[in-house]
Design a binder for these strands. Structure first.
Length: 573
RNA sequence: GAUUCCGUAGCUCAGCUGGUAGAGCAUAACACUUUUAAUGUUGGGGUCCUGGGUUCGAAUCCCAGCGGGAUCACCA
């Protein structure tokens, strides 16, 4: 990126100046109140045409078809596009035809915001259009939008599809590819319907700290930061679980939070460094109760988005109406491999892994080995919503020990379309057991496991005061939205997914060059030659620069005085 | 992290075994009163990602780097 503007950007800036010269403010301050929208007009004009005889609409010009003293354009507002029809003598009834001939035809461009007043009619080819009586410039666009052309049959030409540009410039993406807006509208529906469901049960939405002195509640590497006044390290939360449990200790029956979590780990199509989780904790409940609640909640969400509980995801039709299949971890492995691992010791599990050709390493314990078998052989089979229950205790330090089965905890994960989307426990509320389990994590950390959970003494203190039996649930909202909107990458359901930093052009002023003696009119020429900084220029061969300047002068047909060789040599002093 | 493909005009993309850089749209000018991927005529617009190498000559071949996509692995 150089500091030079493209030809089209220069032309638009000139148009901007000409608008001002005509006394037209390209960025007026006054409100422009509309009384109609594109979607509304196209849906309802045929039913009651009399209601659309004085419409005021606003939006961006997206296409223009100029035919002498009449023109068609398409205006895009937040609801869609509608064609507008302009006739010179209608918008310029007097002698002065400037508004049409100059402003509309010359000075306005694709992407500009305009407001119009007029009446709706049907063209000869039967397209609902707005016949313009008044036109006002609302905002001039200085960068050309990519022009995506659509045929009536929906064929798209010159699509704006490069994922990098789409994600970096989401504002352009959603302008020229408005169909993607529906994903975000549905995302909003997922969250609001879930929130409504919880509120209707009487549970309370809360906010807990994002900046935490101890990062607890999950196994992940955190982002670290520092508070200056307190001169202390802080972490962006990797989970909010331990704070929500403190609120159960405090005496709330049900608390939930939608919030961003931050994990300093890899990025791919299912992981973004910051993501949205919903966690809810309800007192006096257990994980069996929670399963029924999740079924009811997700059915509500699916209906809010699609009207029915069945959602098309890829080639699968997922039915979110409960009850869901329930399988214990061991039974699921039995079902999909025919092997009963429930009574096996570590050595036996290793044999099974070898038999199933699953890669393992010597550091893996019993719980990890079982998880490997599950991931390799079971997970991808779980298409319809399925609860996997009763996990080995080793990997779950915050869940209560199973009421009847030794070595297991009361936990379930919900799998849909082969992916985990929810995780729930009967929460561990025995403070002595909890302390021991966190101490085991400390040992893991000491052995170099940088994802082991940290000790949180204040959390343990809270438990020691007494937490009622509680069931807790976490749902990955981004992944749930991916399911509900049939998207295969997390980037598509985030407005602004994390990207590598853009290579940024050094901001250079003309003064930097004139300070070393370069005449101002030659600075753009140097930029054109690739010298965007004084340092780059000084690193070049002065003789070659002098020769090239002459070449550029000829090539660009510049009518400016050529500096002498001595003057050029002086730039390099 | 591995494999693989890609990087050319504002946008979407061609460009063969190496020989003066192309199209459509956008843009500029002219014409045109119901078009709709409007049309017709004429013009302008390029660091062929960056840096090396091979060559008389590189967008093209080789090496390295940067950026991106896809698949896989790791990780929640």
């Amino acid at each position: 990126m150089s500091i030079a503007l493209s030809e089209q950007e220069i032309i638009r800036r000139e148009s901007l100046q000409q608008l001002r010269a005509l006394g037209i403010n390209p960025y007026p301050a006054e409100a422009f109140d509309v009384n109609a929208w594109a979607q509304d007009i196209t849906d309802n004009f045929a039913i009651k045409p009399e209601a659309y005889q004085n419409v005021v609409i606003a939006g961006r010009i997206m296409t223009r078809r100029i035919m002498g003293s009449a023109s068609f354009a398409e205006l895009q507002d937040s609801t869609g596009r509608i064609q507008i029809y302009l006739k010179r003598d209608d918008i310029c009834p007097d002698e002065d035809k400037t508004l049409y001939n100059t402003v509309f035809k010359k000075l306005l461009d694709i992407g500009d915001y305009i407001g119009i007043k007029g009446y709706v009619f049907l063209t000869q080819t039967g397209e609902i259009s707005v016949h313009v009586r008044d036109l006002i410039v609302l905002s001039k666009s200085l960068k050309p939008l990519p022009v995506v052309k659509r045929e009536d049959d929906g064929t798209i030409h010159d699509g704006f599809t490069d994922p990098e540009l789409r994600y970096r410039q989401r504002y352009v993406d959603l302008t020229v590819n408005p169909a993607y807006k529906q994903i975000f509208i549905n995302r909003s529906k997922v969250i609001s319907s879930m929130r409504n469901y919880f509120n209707n049960q009487g549970w309370m939405e809360v906010e807990t700290p994002i900046l935490q002195p101890v990062h607890g509640g999950a196994a992940a590497r955190p982002f670290a930061t520092h508070h200056n006044t307190l001169d202390m390290p802080l972490f962006l939360r990797i989970a909010n679980e331990l704070y929500l449990k403190r609120l159960i200790v405090a005496g709330f029956d049900g608390v939930y939070e939608f919030g961003k979590m931050f994990r300093n780990e890899g990025m791919d199509r299912t992981h973004n460094p910051e993501f949205t989780a919903m966690e809810i904790y309800v007192a006096y409940k257990d994980y069996i109760w929670m399963m029924a609640m999740v079924e009811e909640c997700l059915e509500t969400v699916a209906k809010a988005v699609h009207g029915i509980p069945v959602v098309q995801v890829g080639s699968n039709e997922i039915n979110f109406a409960g009850p869901y299949e329930k399988l214990s971890m061991y039974d699921s492995i039995l079902k999909y491999t025919g092997i009963d691992v429930s009574a096996m010791d570590e050595a036996g599990l290793r044999e099974v892994c070898a038999e199933l050709k699953i890669d393992v390493n010597p550091t893996m314990g019993k719980g990890k080995l079982i998880d490997e078998i599950f991931s390799a052989k079971v997970e991808h089979n779980l298409i319809q919503p399925t609860y996997i229950t009763d996990y080995p205790i080793e990997m779950t330090p915050l869940a209560k020990k199973h009421r009847t089965k030794d070595g297991l905890v009361e936990r379930f994960e919900l799998f849909v379309n082969g992916k985990e989307i929810a995780n729930a426990y009967s929460e561990l509320n025995d403070p002595i057991d909890q302390r021991e389990r966190l101490e085991e994590q400390l040992i893991l950390a000491g052995r170099g496991d940088d994802e082991a959970m940290a000790m949180d003494d204040d959390f343990l203190r809270a438990l020691e005061y007494g937490m009622p039996p509680t069931s807790g649930l976490g749902i990955g909202i981004d992944r749930l939205v991916m399911l509900m909107t049939n998207q295969s990458t997390i980037q598509e359901v985030l407005f602004f997914p994390q990207m590598r930093p853009e290579k940024k052009a050094k901001v250079v002023t003309i003064e930097d060059f004139t300070n070393i003696g370069v005449p101002a009119e030659w600075v753009p020429v140097l930029n054109k030659m690739g010298f965007n900084t004084v340092e780059e220029l000084k690193a070049a061969n002065p003789n070659k620069v002098f020769n090239d300047l002459g070449g550029m002068r000829k090539k660009m047909k510049l009518d400016i005085t050529m500096p002498t060789k001595e003057e050029v040599m002086a730039w390099f002093k």
